[in-house]
Design a protein around this nucleic acid. Structure first.
Lengths: 253, 253
DNA sequence: CGAGAGGTTGACCCGGATCAAAATCAGTGG
DNA sequence: CCACTGATTTTGATCCGGGTCAACCTCTCG
């Protein structure tokens, strides 16, 4: 497989992607931006898409932001390696985490509706991203239409995901939420081609709590209990799912 | 103003819309489907859009459904009059309400992602809808592109709305949720051109509870307390906001 | 007018928030 | 490499919002 973005960014050719992705990095065909990349790839052959629309593999250091809440919308990002949290900064101290984005997932599509990003995106660990500059796309043509098609797919997937999240948050206990959260994380990593049993969770207990609507103390308590029950292994920030079926059991009922 | 849908449905011409919308019905230019209608209108002048794409003002009796969960996706609907609830039927008895749709709002866009509707839509009162048959649209062309643009706008607005809903549900008390819910309802009705102070809420206490993640008893208690505090007037299913500022106060803090 | 669904009100109880303190971790500079 | 420091995590104790159960009331509609 070849990196579909390479040709669009001749100036960083020295970073060209090997046949296999670097360890810890998502392969292009497992990446959420791939449908778009394919289209642009095709488009490029027709010389209809300007260079520089896609910027590949920008490195983002842990703690760095790729955009702030209310920044004017420019691009959608795909997480190539590492992970991000998106959150709404609150004057009252504690930020509201609205999402976690792992390898292969997209950040920032929500900025499409208004002109601005509705949240800040910050790297939870040293990461890298691909950037799709939607603003500089050609204004019409077949490839644009296909891109729109792709965006619609992504957006409606997002809507479906949020619906599930809402019903989960409303009716589930702390145990259920956390079990579901862990399963969702591993499942998402798995569909992106990450097959390791053990992986880094970059987020803090309070991040998870904010996201799931729980106090950080509760997150801590439940996680240690899960560990005692032999469902997970948790050392420092390394998490390992020991008994996925057991977790499903907890999440279901 | 003229009804933009009329010309597409000559066979129901006897139902033609008067200059002013019927009482209790949203005006076309206040309707969520209007951006799409305008485009199709324009397209029609160029004779590019097939007849029968838009079906105007189908009547839906109270309790009737316009589609069921897992039905194959065909159309997006706009509520012309009345209101709908969307919900996921649960084998365990109590359905999960995922949304309320009042005059001028859209129902069913979420079906775009998969091939199927992710929920059932049922009329809370005697209502009428416009139907946009997305499946039978022409496969390419300028008007299709503009339609996609419109869909993207609607979807990302939906995403933004859900984000807000999520953070609300997570961090807010029963009082806050209900105050916010009432304000949101009136605000939405207002932007659709409904300026009456008093209006019908077709939904039951348990519907509201399901939607907001509260027991129906709690909904009842809080609403009667709001009434005692002079914030609202509530007789049977007629609701009147007496003190919007007071409600905002409750919702904020 | 009667029956059944939906709404109100009261009593009780539990999950998880909150407050507090100890323990552990992650940087930082010497 | 280690000690120091602030941040994060863990653990314990207490408290309260809202869920649950139950009885009663009130509409709605056949």
């Amino acid at each position: 497989m070849m990196d579909r973005l390479r040709k669009h960014i001749p100036q960083i050719g020295r970073n060209r992607v090997p046949e296999r992705p670097a360890p810890g990095e998502v392969a292009c065909e497992d990446c959420g931006l791939d449908p778009m990349c394919s289209i642009l790839d095709y488009a490029d052959e027709q010389s209809n898409v300007p260079e520089g629309v896609l910027l590949r593999r920008r490195h983002v250091a842990r703690g760095e932001t790729i955009f702030l809440k209310d920044d004017p919308f420019r691009s959608v990002f795909a997480v190539k390696s590492g992970s991000f949290k998106t959150y709404i900064p609150k004057a009252s101290g504690v930020d509201q985490v609205v999402g976690f984005h792992v390898i292969g997932e997209l950040v920032g599509i929500e900025g499409l509706s208004g002109q601005r990003y509705p949240y800040t995106a910050r790297a939870l660990q040293d990461s890298s991203v691909c950037e799709l500059r939607l603003e500089s796309l050609s204004k019409s043509g077949r490839e644009r239409e296909e891109l729109q098609q792709g965006i619609i797919k992504m957006l409606s997937a997002e809507v479906a995901f949020n619906h599930q999240l809402i019903t989960a948050l409303i009716h589930q206990s702390a145990d259920q939420r956390l079990a579901g959260f862990l399963l969702s994380l591993t499942k998402r990593l798995h569909t992106r081609g990450m097959r390791q049993i053990e992986f880094q969770i970059g987020m803090s207990r309070s991040d998870i709590g904010s996201y799931l609507g729980l106090a950080s103390e509760t997150v801590s308590r439940v996680l240690t209990r899960f560990q005692k029950q032999g469902l997970i292994q948790l050392r420092h920030k390394r998490l390992q799912i020991l008994d996925a079926d057991g977790l499903s059991e907890v999440a279901e009922h």
